[in-house]
Design a protein around this nucleic acid. Sequence first.
DNA 1: TTGTGAATGTAAGCGCCGATTACACGGATT
DNA 2: AATCCGTGTAATCGGCGCTTACATTCACAA
Lengths: 227, 227
Amino acid sequence: MRPATKSPTARSAAKPRRRAARVAAPKPYHHGDLRRVLIDAALQLVGEGGPDAVSVREAARRAGVSPGAPFRHFPNRDALMQAVAEEAQRRFRQEIEAALAEAPAGDPLARFRSLGLAYLRWAMRNPTHFEIISSRRFFDHDKAAEVSRDNAELIELTERTLADAFAAGQLRSADVKQVQIAGRALVYGFARMNIDGHFPRWGVGAAEAERTAEAILDLFIEGIAGP
Amino acid sequence: MRPATKSPTARSAAKPRRRAARVAAPKPYHHGDLRRVLIDAALQLVGEGGPDAVSVREAARRAGVSPGAPFRHFPNRDALMQAVAEEAQRRFRQEIEAALAEAPAGDPLARFRSLGLAYLRWAMRNPTHFEIISSRRFFDHDKAAEVSRDNAELIELTERTLADAFAAGQLRSADVKQVQIAGRALVYGFARMNIDGHFPRWGVGAAEAERTAEAILDLFIEGIAGP
DNA sequence: TTGTGAATGTAAGCGCCGATTACACGGATT
DNA sequence: AATCCGTGTAATCGGCGCTTACATTCACAA
């Protein structure tokens, strides 16, 4: 949207590689894996300036191809954003599962805490990437099967953990579904407040943010824990 | 391609003209109150398609004015969005205060509940307008003094109410600040989950949404309430 | 009443964007 | 070796935010 930085795009003269075929091929007509490179460029753009900062043209520029080239791989900008979201979601899920693998197996509520903490930590450390997977503004979840499935599984995992906690007598309320929604709202709300600039105080040194995140998560868990 | 002057925009505020005898002045060179009309048009656009759907040109089109005209009143698009956000914030705050005026004066925790409920209800019923005041994406809170002040006052009001609740022995935790942040995260999270499409089931009939909102608010309040 | 400057509109145009179309190249299949 | 088709380029379109030059009208003072 914003006037992007001009880039001279220093394109060396495209030469048919008849000679010097081995050393630094100047510019092959066919890009190696343009799709992958475009996603990476877009991911980088998201990281730099948020989802709005992604433009197909800029991604193409960074990939060193013409502005029309990306449309061979993505029918439109939204499709590119979707692919970016899928990549981000994959990383997010990986982090969550890694944290859960280290959590104590016998204590469901502690597992729930680990889950929430991993969620919050990733969201604090990757705010722009979290943003892109969190909202339907930037892509259609219905059409992004992978993101949708990942998300649904994560939600189900949360609910199962809470159900286990209730079965173990660790929850006060029997309405696991509502506890789950409240928990999601809490962590999602905190993550988005961070993204949306509701915590102006902690700028870059996100240590305090993570500490506060942990504190409110514990507050919530104390609130739902049985007597 | 200018569409041959739209309808004369039926100006409500009658302005004394030299020759009143002339009926239906075709198109006055000076618009009555273009600034106001642009804000209304933008508000309508926000309501129709969210903040991204607002374009200065479209607002100008709806106001029946040339594409450059708005820039006499707003230096750029963000400034228009800022004015829109201020209007939305004004309405939001009005709703909150009206609800609080009806809440029982002697029961701080009940007042906190009323506050949260009014917040959630307005957010459910005006999702796009809530969206625009909630995120810094669409305008800079630092430069929107009114929104910022309103918001700060609302936060302070929340914290005061919780402090009263603690003083009355209604809270379990002494850390009012953290309870306040957690509460904000909860309602904000729920509101944004609604906006961001995390509740696909309730589409338009928002009755269930409001019921769920109330339920999780009560769950939270039970959690923070003293024994 | 009339002259004049400020306020506020129009017209035209810049560069960037997403997207489409016609065409060029070259790797893979035969 | 001929050919097909996946994948790139080039050119172009309309929409956008925004700026500049110019036109019109209002408000106020002489």
